[in-house]
Amino acid sequence: MNQRHASTVLDESFLSVRAKILEIGAALDRVDRALEDGPPLDEDLRIRRDKIDDAIRLLLSERPDRAERIQLLFSRKYAPGWRTDMAIDS
């Protein structure tokens, strides 16, 4: 459906992407500065901080489904047998 050239898409997205990456960098810098003089991250926040690193690694992958995989990374897992586990009749 999308007939636009990749160069056009990148050109129109570049400044927006640049700005968002800059915001991520600045936010992580803020966390690091707070860690220099303060206590370490709480365990649940340590896990969330690691998820951010995992998401950044997904950005560097090649397949054009990064958004979907990042969504799944930040999602609770689904167990197909949940109805049995919760004792809910089919």
Binding site: Q71, S75, R76, Y78
Partner: peptide, 8 residues
Amino acid sequence: PHLEDKFQ
């Protein structure tokens, strides 16, 4: 659901 609960 919202955010991390949506997929499940």
